[in-house]
């Protein structure tokens, strides 16, 4: 479950998948009012997290650099 990790650490995949789960649960027939409110809050928080991630994302490129001595992962320069 996504709850394992703290919110800031959860990957985008975890958050997004959790959102889809929430939607499914909300649509379920056996969702109580209390659950609905709880899911609603969690859902809105998650959308915010996802929005933040998407809006602030910046492609990171690293290069696996091999020398005679060792293999290192360093920032990529074109």
């Amino acid at each position: 479950m996504a709850q394992k990790k703290s919110k800031s650490e959860a990957s985008f995949e975890d958050s997004f998948t959790r959102l889809e789960k929430i939607l499914e649960q909300l649509e379920g027939d056996d969702c109580t009012l209390e659950d609905t409110i709880k899911l609603y809050e969690e859902g809105l928080n998650l959308t915010k997290v996802c929005y933040d991630k998407l809006n602030n994302a910046e492609l990171r490129i690293k290069e696996i650099n091999k020398t005679a001595k060792a293999t290192e992962v360093k920032d990529y320069k074109a």
């Binding site: 985008f12 991630k53 998407l54 994302a57 910046e58 492609l59 990171r60 490129i61 690293k62 290069e63 696996i64 992962v73 990529y76 074109a78």
Partner: peptide, 27 residues
């Protein structure tokens, strides 16, 4: 290959489509 259009095209497309990605180049 570290040189050539393949890597650059790949970087440009992923940057546009899904900038959450971390790319590790293995030349």
């Amino acid at each position: 290959s570290k040189t050539g259009a393949v890597l650059q095209d790949f970087i440009n497309i992923t940057k546009r489509r899904y900038p959450l990605l971390n790319i590790y180049l293995c030349p």
